[in-house]
Design a protein around this nucleic acid. Sequence first.
DNA 1: CTGTGTGAATCAATTCACAGCT
DNA 2: AGCTGTGAATTGATTCACACAG
Lengths: 212, 212
Amino acid sequence: MGQKPQIPAPSVERLCRYERCLAKATRAGLSRISSQELAAFCGVTPEQVRKDLSHFGSFGRRGVGYDASKLREELRRILGLERKRRIAIVGIGNLGTALAGYAGFEARGFEVAGLYDNNPARVGHLVQGMRVRHIDQLASDNQREKIDIAVLAVPESAAQAAASRVVAAGIRGILNFAPTRLEVPDHVVVRDVDMTAELECLSFWVTQAEKQ
Amino acid sequence: MGQKPQIPAPSVERLCRYERCLAKATRAGLSRISSQELAAFCGVTPEQVRKDLSHFGSFGRRGVGYDASKLREELRRILGLERKRRIAIVGIGNLGTALAGYAGFEARGFEVAGLYDNNPARVGHLVQGMRVRHIDQLASDNQREKIDIAVLAVPESAAQAAASRVVAAGIRGILNFAPTRLEVPDHVVVRDVDMTAELECLSFWVTQAEKQ
DNA sequence: CTGTGTGAATCAATTCACAGCT
DNA sequence: AGCTGTGAATTGATTCACACAG
């Protein structure tokens, strides 16, 4: 990541929550919303909402509040969701198959653009209505129509190799489900989702709570 | 959570990483390890390693370093992993099925103790070699043999109801895959894994990086 | 008078720097 | 000398408090 990320990462994570809550609120017919209300909705404080937004501009009207749908649009723009983001799922085992069929992605404006695997036994099969392609095709597919994010759902032992191919294909974002710290060049952004580590942390806090 | 968590949450997340790296290191035959080495392994700084450990005691020898396998034992104890933790998977759709078959859980010392669903069409079926039970059985199953953590893999619309049943069954930890903020009593610990939110954050950082 | 936007103050986490054991 | 453990300093994030706009 070139320059220092002047935007605090926790702030960005909350922006996603705000966007989601706003979607819910507008669907419920609410058109104007205050930082107070939005905060209550998301389980944070009103000043936090305002501070988070202030990193990007000022979107409300003093004494009034925010236009819910307009604020939502702003947030989607800030998050880079003004256009549909295309994702590729790499590794079509148990988890990859489940992710390929996860309705939540489509529902929230992501497009599952392709399924990839390096196992010839899987390539060509239909999974969740899509044909699995060989990972060798990733680079040319990305060139034809840009893929924004690769979701890595491969076993730990294959993770680094798969990541390198994703990077070589010119993809700039990786959501990594393997419990491995990936080595990637600076211009590629990785986020790790380590389910076992989550269980372990949970185990800690549960243990902690048991000692009241 | 009753008292203030004097232990910083980021610290706990790193402890999991340390434990994992130590497992790898000992498997590779390393018996003594310095904070320097462990840190390099995990991608953090040596002082961070030492500070994190210092919250729980002192496990090294000055001028020498740490006994890798002994430190690993300590970490497992701290994380509450000295005994095998039993997990229940609630919601046996695409994702739940994938999680039920995820080898990583067993490999890291968790035991998948039961699969639960509230859909009668699924109950009784064999999934990944285990029979799916009705969620009504969760409470009595938990009484017979304690379940430490419930993994919620139900759709958003069912999440709160499922969480309430999990809590009513007396389970104290929830790993929540639904994109919903769950309402639970204080003594229950929840961790959220929101895959769509992860994609959205990634989208932000990728966009950010594109503006170089 | 209401509710935003923001510098100032507080609180938390990380990094520094060094004393003390081996 | 080498490396841990830990207060002190620093950096970063959150909360406070108030000026300002409608």
